[in-house]
């Protein structure tokens, strides 16, 4: 008897262009595990979290901000992370903005960011040296980093928070008109592929297949489409450490 397909989803902070890669990944995954998996894409973090709460997710490429809830409340296990990649944040202004450092920014400004929780949190931490906090800014939430850039260029907002990867993927023309004030170098905060309770029996096989990807042309092609070089196994203590670190930053 066929089982109900497992549900795969990815953190909604990815650009629509990279979603094609996840569809290719899912096709590869179903063949590799010989099982049915449906890729569900959620438009925002709120709807994805609701699906997690409803136990509607079995495999997730998760934002680090959600790792604690997934592991401690929903019984997920962290499996792997893209090799050598971490989530870093760029704080940028328009090229003609008078501030040359974060300390040059002033309370009361308009700040553009997406609803990406780890980027917003890390960005706000980097604004603390300027005595800027959630209570003394006007936050404008955009649905993509391209729109964050547009907010700055149209002077709707004075400062923007970007996932570093997304900032450097902006068009050259856009980037030339922006100026990064600071980029984080935190290194230990990263997205991760996490497995839910219904798929736990496939964990070992899945990790093996992920790690073997660079060894076959097909696997390498899938990695290329995701923009990753490898998948690295994540030890339980490594992810517990990341959760502890996130806990120190929240609140």
């Amino acid at each position: 008897m066929k089982h109900k397909p497992f549900q795969l989803t990815v953190s909604p902070d990815f650009a629509p262009t990279s979603l094609a890669g996840w569809h290719i990944f899912n096709t590869w995954l179903q063949r590799s595990l010989d099982t049915r998996i449906h890729l569900d894409i959620y438009q925002d973090f709120a709807s994805q979290r609701q699906a997690i709460r409803n136990d509607a997710i079995d495999l997730i490429f998760a934002n680090p901000y959600d790792a604690s809830m997934l592991i401690r409340e929903k019984g997920f296990h962290c499996l792997a992370r893209p090799g050598g990649r971490s989530d870093e944040v760029v704080i940028a202004v328009r090229g003609d903005h008078p501030a040359s450092t974060v300390e040059g920014l002033e309370a009361g400004m308009r700040l553009a960011s997406t609803d990406d929780p780890d980027v917003h949190m890390m960005g706000m931490i980097m604004l603390e040296p300027a005595n800027i906090n959630a209570d003394n800014i006007e936050r404008r939430i955009c649905s993509s980093y391209v729109l964050v850039a547009k907010e700055l260029l149209s002077v709707q907002s004075e400062v923007g928070l970007f996932l570093a990867e997304a900032f450097y993927e902006l068009s050259k023309i856009t980037r030339r008109q922006l100026r990064p004030l600071v980029q984080s170098q935190i290194q230990v905060v990263h997205h991760a592929l996490m497995v839910g309770p219904r798929m736990q029996h496939l964990t070992e096989t899945l990790l093996q297949r992920l790690q073997e990807m660079p060894q076959t042309p097909r696997g390498q092609g899938v990695l290329d489409s995701l923009g990753y070089k490898t998948w690295e196994a994540v030890e339980e203590e490594d992810v517990e450490f990341m959760i502890d670190l996130m806990d120190t930053l929240v609140g």
């Binding site: 931490i125 517990e240 502890d244 670190l245 806990d247 120190t248």
Partner: peptide, 22 residues
Amino acid sequence: TVIPNLRRGKLIGYTSVRRKPS
């Protein structure tokens, strides 16, 4: 910021994270 690190309810140590102050 310093927090206790608990694993299955047992204290295994503390994590401290420092950031740039104003």
